[in-house]
Design a protein around this nucleic acid. Structure first.
Lengths: 219, 219
DNA sequence: GACGCCATACCAACTGGTCGGTACGCTGAC
DNA sequence: GTCAGCGTACCGACCAGTTGGTATGGCGTC
């Protein structure tokens, strides 16, 4: 241990704070917040305990920072994904589901959601962490709203700005996150990633139905 | 098991073991597994630490027992519910969703699922707890399969025993649990029980669509 | 029906290790 | 010289699990 003390940016490019955050995402996602000790995080990040408490006031502060860091890094990944290129808004929504589906690999702890895992533990004991998780999940959901609203509007010949359309789009956007989070939980319980694919299939089918519902053709 | 030996209904009706299990369900559901200490459980159950380790080898054993206890008590509640009385299998399935909806109150920790909460923490660290949670969730899902299969068979004019019907019914049964577990997670993150109602509405709509899909009349 | 025997159920005090957090010292950059 | 960015050493609290003991009650025996 005790990595190179002299040149900080030599072998390990990231700063200590960032190394701690990436380590926190990886370790907490696997083992949970309470089961992860500060020493675990320091070891994973290759820094000392002094460095940890230099950057974060306490463990709870780190957890909030990790949730925010998670929001930022995942937002970048989704913003750069190809499903945005579809012309048809319904295709963009279904493309989002395909993209989520493609992220699922063999190891559940590598594709499951950090904030979904944390919020279960933090809900009653750490309100600030719970709120950070809420911001992350609901903030991500809002990025879907405009596409869903456009797709709904196309099927009902209603204006996208219509209030009932906006509300229903927001509800459906939240529902995507509900299904994904639930799929992670149940796939962990069953110890089987196939359940995530299966769940996304059902959700995809639901969206397809909703987008065809009253729909005439639109293009 | 081990029924009441002498006078079960004296001052404290339940035996120490059962008091610990009911306390475990209540406390762990609120605070999570790792955040709950053995002393917490003893205090909640009104027993000493010695009693705890008399009945359970360690904390992990208690967690498994609590998951099993949860399975048993919830199974009784669902078995006695009125939605089974519908003649139409589709109505039984939708009645199940209504029943789940009716269980949702104001306090999330009072309606959320113990095993869904525990499995997130236990997945990587306590395989025996994870498996107990998996048995609980998937075991509950199987109780829905026959009704879903019957409802699907009615819409497609296929035999209930048909293999594809059985598989799809099993998949939909799992999906109900996915949505419910996800609704609990996201409603905790948003700190808003309304999200559970909203999610069940979407699931109800999906089932209604699936049961009407290719459907002619059936009776 | 009294007695010895033992199992079950439970309690209070303690222990050894762990964990979050602190105190303080070093060092290079500006 | 001072301050960010660490590292080392350490502390106090807490916590899972242990130990050693007590109360109770069933049961065979005589």
């Amino acid at each position: 241990m005790t990595a190179a003390p002299t040149s900080p940016a030599a072998a390990n490019p990231a700063t200590g704070r960032e190394r701690l955050l990436t380590a926190a995402v990886a370790v907490i996602r696997q083992r949970g917040l309470h089961a992860t000790t500060v020493d675990d995080l320091c070891a994973a990040a290759g820094v000392s305990k002094g460095a940890f408490f230099h950057h974060f006031a306490n463990k709870e502060t780190l957890a909030v920072a990790a949730a925010d860091y998670w929001s930022e890094t995942t937002a970048e990944a989704f913003a750069g994904a190809a499903y945005h290129d579809h012309i048809d808004p319904a295709a963009r929504v279904l493309g989002y589901l395909d993209f989520r589906d493609s992220l699922v690999g063999a190891d559940i702890e590598l594709y499951s959601c950090l904030v979904g895992t944390m919020v279960q533990e933090a809900y009653a004991t750490n309100p600030s962490v719970r709120d950070a998780c809420g911001r992350s999940i609901l903030g991500h959901a809002t990025t879907l709203e405009s596409d869903i609203a456009a797709a709904l509007a196309a099927t009902t010949a209603t204006a996208v700005g219509d209030d009932s359309i906006r509300r229903e789009a927001a509800s459906l956007a939240r529902y995507t996150q509900v299904v994904l989070q639930g799929a992670f939980v149940v796939s962990k319980a069953a110890n089987d990633p196939a359940l995530v694919h299966e769940s996304i299939d059902h959700l995809r089918r639901y969206f397809a139905m909703r987008f065809e519902a009253t729909a005439p053709t639109h293009a």
